[in-house]
């Protein structure tokens, strides 16, 4: 998963991104982090093929892409759940679009609903769920299509702090054995340091890669609470803050 010279200038003349070049390591969780308005979400949507870049190219496994593809799945900031469909149909929706036959896709959907911890809510509608649960539906939908790359756009930003912590732990748990490449947009420094194998810091607008930080938090043997006291984790939080501080004020 590589980006070369990605640039984006809107029709209004605003330059959101300039010459972004980066290779995301396969099977790792990378975070895009930067000051607000730096074009993190724009970059993620370009990677997802949802909006076209005005310069540069996106390559997945060496092949150039310029649209959405089966190897990438997206988790949206505002969840983007069909309000008129049940949790089950929402999770199965990606498969439905691909023409997977009814019973088969519902079977898969049920499995992932269980994995994200929503078993028993299959027949509920999105409006009956809390924000955190809705985002679990969004995550299950992305996992259900079995893409190698999962793109997450500030998935926890509309979720309260406590739910968010629990969700982060569950997310790491879910991804641990799957070897998915995850690209995660966030504006939370702690979240980035806690979750990521690699943090890509973007500069203020026009956004470009400013620094790469690898927290080196050894997650394998530690409990979530130990990680949050880990020296490497705390150092990473500090490092990021020192870089980002430059772009504020």
């Amino acid at each position: 998963m590589e980006l070369t010279g990605i640039g984006k200038t809107y029709a209004t003349g605003v330059e959101a991104l300039r010459d972004v070049t980066h290779a995301f390591p396969a099977g790792k969780l990378s975070t895009l982090l930067g000051p607000s308005g730096c074009g993190k979400t724009t970059l993620l949507k370009i990677i997802g093929g949802l909006i076209p870049a005005t310069a540069g190219e996106v390559r997945v496994k060496g092949k150039r892409v310029d649209g959405p593809g089966a190897e990438r799945a997206f988790v949206f900031q505002d969840f983007a759940l069909l309000p008129w469909a049940t949790v089950l149909r929402n999770v199965a929706f990606g498969l439905e679009l691909r023409g997977v036959p009814g019973e088969e896709r519902l079977e898969i959907a049920r499995k992932f609903i269980g994995e994200v911890g929503l078993a028993g809510f299959e027949a509920s509608y999105p409006h009956q769920l809390s924000g955190g649960m809705r985002q679990r539906v969004g995550l299950a939908r992305a996992l259900a299509v079995d893409a190698d790359i999962i793109l997450m756009d500030e998935p926890f930003s509309s979720v309260d702090e406590q739910t968010r912590r629990k969700f982060q732990e569950d997310l790491l748990d879910l991804l641990r054995h799957r070897r998915k490449t995850v690209i995660f947009v966030t504006h939370s420094i702690e979240e980035a340091a806690y979750l990521s194998d690699q943090i890509v810091l973007l500069s203020a607008r026009p956004g470009t890669v400013s620094q790469i930080i690898q927290p080196n938090v050894n997650r394998g043997s530690k409990s979530p609470d130990e990680i949050r006291r880990d020296k490497n984790y705390l150092d990473a939080v500090d490092d990021i803050w020192h870089v980002l501080k430059r772009y504020l004020g």
Partner: peptide, 23 residues
């Protein structure tokens, strides 16, 4: 956002219309 979601999961234009816009 729902239209983008549909496209991200490889919905064709027809699917976007039939499964998102019309409902």
């Amino acid at each position: 956002s729902l239209i983008q979601m549909c496209r991200a999961f490889l919905g064709t234009r027809t699917q976007v219309v039939v499964k998102i816009i019309l409902p």
